[in-house]
């Protein structure tokens, strides 16, 4: 058993095409990639929302905000 479909390289390379593992599972892998990508956006939206809220609550000291502005 070989995940790439070849157990040895005793082949003519002119007859060889795809050599990646789990051929036939491309659609499933694509679905997994889409889930990974969309999940990343979801997690990032939530994280950034929390960070913005924390930053907003810290930004009440006008002296520190002025220092930040002057630091450019």
């Amino acid at each position: 058993m070989s995940t790439i479909g070849y157990e040895s390289w005793a082949v003519d390379l002119a007859d060889v095409g795809a050599i990646y593992p789990f051929q036939g599972w491309e659609v499933v892998m694509t679905i997994a990639a889409v889930i990974f990508w969309l999940a990343w956006h979801r997690i990032q939206f939530v994280q950034e929302g929390q960070q913005m809220e924390e930053a907003r609550q810290k930004a009440v000291d006008h002296e520190k905000v002025r220092e930040s502005i002057e630091r450019y």
Binding site: M1, S2, T3, I4, Y6, E7, S8, W9, A10, P21
Partner: peptide, 12 residues
């Protein structure tokens, strides 16, 4: 795991 059973080399 992912390449389990695949040839590591072109040599017999």
């Amino acid at each position: 795991f992912i390449l389990w059973g695949s040839p590591s080399s072109p040599f017999e």
